[in-house]
Design a protein around this nucleic acid. Structure first.
Lengths: 166, 166
DNA sequence: TATTGTTATACTCTATAACTATA
DNA sequence: TATAGTTATAGAGTATAACAATA
């Protein structure tokens, strides 16, 4: 429990604040666009996008939850919402009777495609406009490293609970 | 309403996803630390921090709201929570009878100082560890530009409502 | 026994609209 | 009339714990 450590340098603070504020503003803007054009929250969109990326438009609940941080019950809630709207369907897995496979419906795929255009446009407009190619490259590189590190580092007191590999 | 636009390049997608994921993970980690060590949500911490930064530890409701995006009512809620915990006090302004000034109490200042240490430590551990000085500089520069742009660009359909300058 | 997922429940947060009061 | 702020209210989202079923 390090009770003290060197105070952060101004440029470190600037970088930290910038990440937080940009992340917040970006999420806010994107969330609004998704709601207006597709009636989706950002997380619902992320779930659809994750399904759209995967091989046959289907994934297990647990794998989605792992990827999108959610608590299990939170994911159950969101998937229920999507299912109620007919955007996804729940199927039982033939391999493992315990697991539930979530599959994109044609309607879900259609909506995803439709919303994605505006999504990309929004991101381009508010995020990429002030950046040149080199900025984009550097940003992806640096933040990519941060992301990998964050994924690897356990959230401190958490994580060392029950996990398979652990 | 641009129905189509060139698809984003892979490096653009990488940069965008990295910003979003890093922002999310960072906020999540920070939020957890703040809750554990101070019983504060991230937004409550931000309010306290904003007050701590300002000249005499006090600011108007509206100025806080403008800075932290919140709706007015949302800010009223959060400040009420903080006031109920004795961390801030509401005062009426002598200059403008309509406005409410929020002031950090000694207890609030003490908590802020106490929590800040862990906050900085957390950010350092999960965010700055994989970065060298140049990374930090570049990140602050690039994201700083993005932030300034996002602040300037209206959220599309919003904003052009009632604003003084408008 | 561990894992997958759901349910019940309670809580936090946010936004909208209506309202009061001051400028 | 515009601004500052509150309140009521309703809805979305989240987390925890208890639970059932399968591996």
């Amino acid at each position: 429990m390090p009770e003290d450590s060197a105070p952060p340098r101004p440029d470190q603070l600037a970088a930290y604040f910038a990440v937080m504020e940009v992340g917040n503003l970006l999420q806010h803007a994107v969330d609004q666009q998704l709601r207006e054009e597709g009636g989706l929250s950002y997380i619902q969109f992320q779930i659809l996008a994750a399904l759209g990326e995967s091989a046959e438009g289907r994934q297990r609940m647990t794998d989605i939850a792992d990827r999108l941080v959610h608590s299990r019950s939170g994911l159950t809630y969101q998937v229920s919402q999507l299912a109620a709207s007919g955007l996804v369907a729940k199927e039982s897995s033939p391999e493992d009777e315990r697991s539930v496979v979530v599959a994109l419906t044609p309607k879900g795929r259609e909506l995803l495609g439709r919303v994605l255009t505006g999504h990309i446009e929004t991101v381009r407009r508010i995020f990429f406009t002030p950046l040149n190619d080199e900025d984009v490259t550097v940003l992806g590189d640096v933040l990519g490293r941060v992301r990998d590190h964050m994924r690897a580092v356990p959230p401190r007191s958490a994580a060392p609970r029950r996990k398979r590999g652990q």
